[in-house]
Design a protein around this nucleic acid. Sequence first.
DNA 1: GGGTACATGTAATCAGTTACATGATTTA
DNA 2: TAAATCATGTAACTGATTACATGTACCC
Lengths: 178, 178
Amino acid sequence: MSTQRLTEGAYIVLALLEHVQPATPYDLKLFAERATIDFWTVSHAQTYNECARLAREGLLAEEREQTGRRRRIYTLTELGRSALAEWLQTPVDSLEAVRDLSILKLFFGADPATLAPTQLEMHEERLRRYESHAEARDAARAAGGSVPPGASFALEAGIGHEREYVRLWKKMRDSRAD
Amino acid sequence: MSTQRLTEGAYIVLALLEHVQPATPYDLKLFAERATIDFWTVSHAQTYNECARLAREGLLAEEREQTGRRRRIYTLTELGRSALAEWLQTPVDSLEAVRDLSILKLFFGADPATLAPTQLEMHEERLRRYESHAEARDAARAAGGSVPPGASFALEAGIGHEREYVRLWKKMRDSRAD
DNA sequence: GGGTACATGTAATCAGTTACATGATTTA
DNA sequence: TAAATCATGTAACTGATTACATGTACCC
């Protein structure tokens, strides 16, 4: 029964946990922060809450340290694993709205030249970060390590989009009024 | 004083209203839906609430029909206009997270081939829609009409990104496991 | 004039964030 | 051992969505 719809945040916690379990909510947060891409954000508080909730619903097993910080340490249960697997193999049949504040302002008449410098700088920085991740990945692969293809694809996607942003904002920066 | 921070939703309402005022919340919703790009979503309920709130704070003037539906009809006040102008000319100094559910799943190990068909189809459709908007715009321009450059830029951005998505998902679709 | 689609609004809910509070560990 | 940082949690708030409720206009 318990396969009531989970929120996206919940699935992200499940997915993160699969990669690093057993782990505390704090571990998840760290892993997410370092995990290359900015495809989502999960706040610290949400991570703790979501773990507790998922445990209550039987998707996570919670173990508690008996000493010191008495941290809660989580692992996926069978139920959690299958919920995650099901989610992962379900095609996404909707498109997210783009949600780029700068483009939105542009649309509403903001001056491109005003927005461009800041945006360009930030997208360039993000692009550089992604590219250095890609290099690290390639190096690892060359050294015989195995790299999960999904992460690799996602990284390509990120790079592609950031390049597009950079191209675009450069154009804006250089554009004089029509 | 009243320049307390407004939410993004509030600014969007202000910006929409500038384009179509005087207007009812319903008019805004319609305009937003037809306005080319999917850079944000504003739900029906939010539109009504936000208009009421902005009016309470003096950024909108509310007039009420005396007959029939007794609709509330809004226009920007001077205060509203200047809040909007200020927002539009403030550079955005942060990057939104990308929030693409499919890429996220990919990152977590979903099978590209499973996700690709649906995503490809949807991005292609969106791309087509944007491109036809662009054509309409070019036609209008050729006919001597004036087209606000901001909307045009935003459209270019949308097209660029959708092309990138299409390229990407085609690649995924055709990729066999590493 | 009865039904359907359009339009307008409110209420309840919720996911997610910010702010607060505290405890444990490390370091100077 | 004091200060700083790391870590863990909770509470309050809020932007936004979903669901509900109703009214008006149009169409057959």
